[in-house]
């Protein structure tokens, strides 16, 4: 039988957490959509169930170690390689040929989490003979996931599915050409990593830091309310060169942003846009 009572996370608790994160750590989650965010906090409360909501609130506010753990749990860090193969296929067909006219390519993968999609993109660039002239900047608000992205070491058990996704994306060789297997892990080869840099960046509070030919930000806007979506799309617009591409997740769109008029649609289904 359960001895401790479940800490119920409702609207009031969520607002208190948001305020504490902002006041003590300067991280603003107020523009996040509530359904998913509330669930994340409830998950943490269920795991750390001994105590009351106030002890949870206190720990998040005062304890740095706990805060970093909390931050990692509260943001969704699920990702996979070549997720939505038809999207990567469209990038091969509709984006890379256009980019090949440029002498050098600046690419920003925003909110890249543990980096699986950054490596997916690097593979595509390599196969289009564009990797040599590319610099890929991966960013996330969470420093811990960036360490994983930098290392490029992933559990091998997922690679059967990744290999299938790669083939469906139009891959001509075998994905295993790009990594070494070691003790249950797949380690990406350094010629892919050499073109990547990773750094912290919070889409909510940090500004534009360069001009890019391609920005990828997939399955991030779904966690933001409409005004925050508009804010982030504006940031992307200001961070793209004219003719630069913006790639969103397959269920995301520019619908809630006034800046949508600054883009033309390259592939409506795969949510690929181009700044005009």
């Amino acid at each position: 039988m359960e001895n401790h009572k479940r800490i119920e996370i409702g609207e009031g608790e969520v607002e208190k957490i948001i305020e504490a994160l902002n006041r003590y750590h300067g991280i603003d989650f107020s523009g996040y959509s509530r359904a998913s965010f509330t669930r994340r906090i409830q998950r943490i409360a269920d795991k750390d169930a001994n105590g009351t909501f106030d002890t949870l609130l206190h720990r998040v506010s005062e304890n740095k170690d706990y805060f970093y753990k909390f931050l990692k749990e509260i943001t969704v860090n699920v990702t996979e390689m070549f997720r939505d193969p038809s999207f990567f296929n469209s990038v091969r067909k509709n984006v890379l040929p256009e980019l090949s006219r440029q002498q050098s390519l600046q690419i920003w993968h925003a909110a890249c989490s543990t980096g699986e999609e950054v490596y997916s993109l690097a593979v595509l660039l390599h196969e289009a003979s564009l990797l040599e002239r590319s610099t890929i900047r991966g960013t996330d608000l969470n420093p811990e996931v960036l360490l994983t992205a930098k290392q490029g070491v992933y559990p091998h058990r997922n690679f059967q599915e990744y290999g299938q996704n790669y083939e469906r994306s139009g891959g001509k060789v075998s994905l295993s050409e790009y990594y070494e297997a070691s003790y249950g892990n797949s380690i990406f080869k350094s010629f892919l990593k050499d073109k990547m840099t990773f750094s912290e960046h919070n889409l909510v509070t940090d500004g534009s830091f360069n001009k890019f030919n391609l920005i990828m930000c997939r399955n991030v806007l779904i966690y933001f309310q409409k005004p925050l979506q508009a804010h982030v799309v504006h940031l992307f617009k200001n961070s793209l060169v004219t003719g630069g591409f913006l790639c969103l997740g397959s269920k995301e769109s520019l619908l809630f942003s006034d800046d949508r008029l600054a883009f033309e649609v390259v592939d409506a289904k795969e949510k690929i846009y181009r700044k005009i």
Binding site: A35, R40, I222
Partner: peptide, 21 residues
Amino acid sequence: APANYHLLIEADRTFALDYSE
């Protein structure tokens, strides 16, 4: 519900998609 997303509902009775575990 779209493939590979969780489907949640917001208080204003709109859909929210979630790509968590």
